[in-house]
Measured scan of single mutants.
Amino acid sequence: DVEPGKFYKGVVTRIEKYGAFINLNEQVRGLLRPRDMISLRLENLNVGDEIIVQAIDVRPEKREIDFKYIP
């Protein structure tokens, strides 16, 4: 289970104008929005990159997770 405030290693699987989709595993995916990136820009991410993200909002009923990147 993903818990708000905890850090997780994930893989960038898709990049859109509104953010990057990060997979923690095959069943768990969330969104990293540009506003939640500190010292990292969306255009510097590539599909396949491994990054450490912090879960900031977890909505299991909608199967949605918002992430934050903190270097």
Rank of each mutant, 00 (worst) to 15 (best):
G30Q: 01
N25Y: 07
I65M: 05
K62N: 10
P34M: 08
I52C: 11
S39A: 13
F7I: 08
V2A: 05
R33Y: 03
L42A: 04
V12T: 01
F21E: 05
N25C: 09
D66A: 08
D49P: 01
P60Q: 10
N44T: 11
E16H: 09
V2T: 04
F7L: 09
K9P: 07
K68H: 07
L24V: 09
R41H: 13
I52T: 11
V11E: 06
P71L: 06
Q27K: 15
L45C: 02
E43P: 05
I22G: 00
N46V: 14
L40G: 08
N44F: 11
Y18Q: 07
K62R: 14
R14N: 07
D36I: 02
G19P: 01
N46R: 15
E61Y: 05
I52P: 02
R35I: 09
R63Y: 12
E64I: 11
P71M: 08
Y18N: 05
Y8K: 00
I65Y: 08
D36K: 03
A55T: 07
A55H: 01
K9T: 10
I22Y: 00
R59K: 07
N44A: 12
D36P: 01
V47Y: 06
I52Y: 10
E26N: 14
S39I: 10
V58T: 08
V58P: 04
L42S: 03
E26R: 15
L24G: 01
E64S: 08
N44Q: 15
R29W: 13
E61W: 05
V47K: 05
L45V: 07
F7T: 07
V12N: 00
R14D: 05
L40M: 11
F67M: 04
I15P: 00
M37F: 02
R33F: 03
L31P: 02
I70N: 11
E26F: 13
N25G: 11
V47N: 04
V47M: 07
S39M: 13
Q54L: 15
E50C: 13
Y69E: 06
L32V: 03
L42W: 05
V2Y: 09
K62S: 12
K9Y: 12
R63Q: 13
I51D: 00
V11S: 07
T13Q: 07
T13Y: 08
V11I: 14
R29D: 07
D49E: 09
D49L: 07
I38D: 14
S39N: 15
Y18L: 06
K68M: 13
I51W: 01
R63L: 13
A55L: 06
K62M: 12
G19I: 03
A55M: 05
L32F: 02
R14A: 12
L24E: 00
E43T: 10
I70G: 07
R14P: 00
E61T: 11
F21Y: 14
R35C: 08
I51F: 04
I52V: 14
A55W: 03
R29Y: 13
I15A: 00
D1A: 15
R59S: 06
K6N: 11
P34L: 11
G19N: 01
